[in-house]
């Protein structure tokens, strides 16, 4: 994930999906190299917002490092986490699902003189 606009978009998509459909929502972070502070906050907000609904949210870590960070932040104990999309789709509780792709991480702008 990168900019705040992308995070807002993801949150909006997730909320829309949870309102309009009962299908599980798979948040695919395969394109995301690493998670920063805002990414973790965004994920926690999204999970909290759909917590009262029937929608099942699942995460695809995409990389071992992301998987570790999801466990360290306890997100892994809130929602199911899979290593890959294949692994997630093979899970019987997924069925017909909506997939939200998290955009590629954009490095933070360097601060300094030109």
């Amino acid at each position: 994930m990168s900019s705040s606009a992308q995070r807002r978009a993801l949150r909006k998509e997730l909320l829309n999906a949870s309102r309009t459909s009962a299908s599980p929502v798979v948040v695919d972070m395969s394109g995301c190299n690493t998670l920063n502070h805002d990414d973790v906050d965004c994920l926690l907000e999204c999970i909290a917002e759909v917590a009262g609904r029937d929608t099942l949210v699942l995460l695809v870590a995409g990389s071992p490092a992301n998987r570790v960070l999801l466990e360290v932040t306890r997100i892994g104990s809130l929602v199911p986490v899979f290593n890959s999309m294949q692994e997630a789709l093979a899970d019987p509780q997924v069925g017909d699902s909506i997939t939200l792709k998290v955009p590629q991480t954009i490095p933070s702008p360097q601060v300094g003189s030109a």
């Binding site: 690493t34 998670l35 920063n36 502070h37 990414d39 973790v40 071992p64 490092a65 992301n66 998987r67 570790v68 960070l69 466990e71 360290v72 932040t73």
Partner: peptide, 18 residues
């Protein structure tokens, strides 16, 4: 730096402020 003994993975906790 966090090395997970089970996964054998090293993750950087700094960007996430962990």
């Amino acid at each position: 730096r966090f090395e997970h003994l089970g996964f054998g993975t090293v993750a950087d906790l700094q960007p996430a402020g962990l």
